[in-house]
């Protein structure tokens, strides 16, 4: 690729990656957080004990977690078409990215919520707090540093997945690296995209760590 074409191509690819990661991360947060809360609340001895619901949710999450992303992406192509009307492009990639990340994040949410002292939850109940209040005002705020750390890990994973999604036409840095760096032996493009990905991941991780640390008062 000529130097003149390189910059616009990189910018466009970076933009596509950012778009895929941003939207799928947002959707993952919106879906994974309640799912994680449900996984904890439906425990026997939890806020809303429901072992059957818990078993079903846990099963679904485990299936989602055990599928390699590349398999998941291909397997749900019909669903992707149903939702977005297409199976290729940046928008279409958001569907498998989200579906892959939700179970992952839900488990991290579950772990973070389980880290909240049981005594603190009981103390709130002893003060007459409703279950909704316990979740909103006790569980989530107490687990916030863990929730942020989990989201950081999820975003990093999404950056990785998004490169794979690029391979089926999602665009982005991964796509650029494969089309130019690998298929056309353009080492410069390869090195630049790799460096860019590494830098972005580092930035995301550092930012996430910083925020989590700021939020923690333990």
């Amino acid at each position: 690729m000529s130097a003149d074409d390189l910059l616009p191509a990189l910018l466009q690819a970076t933009g596509e990656t950012a778009q895929m990661v941003f939207w799928s991360a947002l959707l993952t947060l919106l879906l994974g957080l309640p799912l994680g809360v449900l996984l904890v609340a439906t425990d026997r001895g939890g806020l809303v004990p429901a072992p059957a619901v818990k078993a079903v949710l846990g099963g679904v999450v485990n299936v989602g977690r055990s599928l390699p992303f590349i398999v998941l992406m291909v397997a749900i192509l019909p669903f992707t078409r149903l939702v977005t009307g297409t199976t290729i492009g940046t928008v279409a990639a958001i569907v498998p990215l989200t579906l892959g990340a939700v179970p992952f994040y839900a488990r991290l949410v579950e772990t973070a919520l389980r880290g909240v002292e049981r005594a603190v939850v009981e103390a709130a109940q002893a003060m007459g707090a409703s279950r909704v209040r316990v979740v909103a005002r006790v569980l989530l705020p107490e687990a916030l540093p863990g929730l942020v750390a989990g989201l950081t890990v999820t975003v990093v994973a999404l950056i990785g997945y998004s490169a794979m999604a690029g391979a089926i036409g999602g665009g982005g840095l991964g796509d650029l690296a494969i089309r130019y760096g690998y298929q056309r032996f353009d080492t410069t493009v390869m090195i630049i995209t790799v460096v860019l990905l590494v830098v972005v991941v580092q930035l995301v991780q550092s930012l996430g760590d910083l925020v989590a640390r700021r939020l923690s008062h333990r």
Binding site: A119, V120, P141, E142
Partner: peptide, 20 residues
């Protein structure tokens, strides 16, 4: 829940909200 608001409780390990 309303009745509990009038019953205070203190705990061996304090059970305070660390985020507040």
């Amino acid at each position: 829940r309303r009745a509990r608001q009038r019953i205070g409780m203190i705990h061996q390990h304090f059970a305070l909200l660390s985020s507040r």
